[in-house]
Amino acid sequence: MEFQNKRILVTGAGQGIGRAIVERLCTQYEEVQVIALSKTLSNLELLKHKYPQIQIVQVDLQDWESTRREVSKLGPVDILINNAGVAILQPFLDIDENSFNSVFDINVKAVINISQVVAKCMIQHNIQGAAIVNVSSVASKAALTHHTVYCASKAALDSVTRSMALELGPHNIRVNSVQPTVVMTQMGQMAWSDPSKSGPVLSKIPLGRFSKPEEVVDVILYLAGPKSSMVHGVHIPVDGGFLI
């Protein structure tokens, strides 16, 4: 019942954690209205075929004006889950401007852009139980090899989350972030299947494994729902103890 009659916008919904969020909402909760946003139309069409009740939106989040235009068309939503993200991994000495811009465009600028549009509409329509959840990473707090730009973007996202919480809280809009470690989505399995790569990271996780997508979804939906009604401006790691 916690999401009954709620309109929930999920970005980066075509695959990975975003897709897992949409699937959970569509299969476990009744009368929830899910809006799935992604850059890749084929992924959205596959999702729509499986869950005909969802609304799909195709947009390139690096295009500021197109994103504002498409999100504005959606009208009021109760919950925004800023899940879209990108990682371009390069050694520090090889970082180039295009890669830097691409990562920050999606991981930081797009969150600000979409959240501005959505929050203004939430305020205008006096949405009750409004919540925004940003999907960050433990990389916001821990240095990872070849992840300089990604780490910086997620640290920036956590800072944006705190500022959003400070300014949107008086409008009864809760804002929090989730910080997963490596998540064993299909992409995660491909990227971290090599023991020589995963071993050093796993050795720092007391629970001895990476996160499952559903474990991250559990925390995201907790922060999005009424059971966290007094949780505001925080970052919750889903990392098996990596950060300790």
Results as ranks from 00 to 15, higher is better:
1 M>S: 15
1 M>F: 11
5 N>G: 03
9 L>H: 06
12 G>R: 08
14 G>W: 13
14 G>K: 06
14 G>H: 10
19 R>M: 06
19 R>L: 14
19 R>A: 08
20 A>P: 10
20 A>C: 12
21 I>K: 02
36 A>V: 14
45 E>T: 15
47 L>P: 05
52 P>W: 12
52 P>E: 05
53 Q>M: 13
54 I>Y: 09
55 Q>C: 00
56 I>P: 02
61 L>A: 10
63 D>N: 15
66 S>V: 00
67 T>I: 06
69 R>N: 10
69 R>V: 08
70 E>Q: 09
75 G>C: 08
77 V>T: 09
78 D>K: 00
84 A>W: 06
84 A>E: 08
96 D>W: 02
102 S>K: 14
109 K>N: 12
110 A>I: 06
112 I>K: 00
113 N>F: 01
116 Q>G: 00
117 V>D: 01
120 K>F: 05
120 K>Q: 13
122 M>E: 03
123 I>G: 02
124 Q>K: 15
124 Q>E: 15
126 N>S: 15
126 N>I: 09
130 A>N: 03
131 A>N: 11
135 V>Q: 09
135 V>P: 07
135 V>L: 15
140 S>N: 02
142 A>H: 10
144 L>M: 14
146 H>P: 00
149 V>E: 03
150 Y>H: 13
153 S>P: 07
155 A>F: 14
157 L>G: 08
157 L>E: 11
159 S>Y: 13
160 V>D: 06
160 V>Y: 11
162 R>H: 14
166 L>N: 09
177 S>H: 02
179 Q>I: 05
180 P>L: 03
183 V>Y: 04
184 M>P: 04
196 S>G: 15
201 V>I: 15
201 V>Q: 05
205 I>T: 04
208 G>V: 06
215 E>Y: 12
215 E>L: 12
217 V>Y: 03
217 V>A: 05
217 V>E: 03
231 V>F: 07
237 P>G: 02
239 D>Y: 07
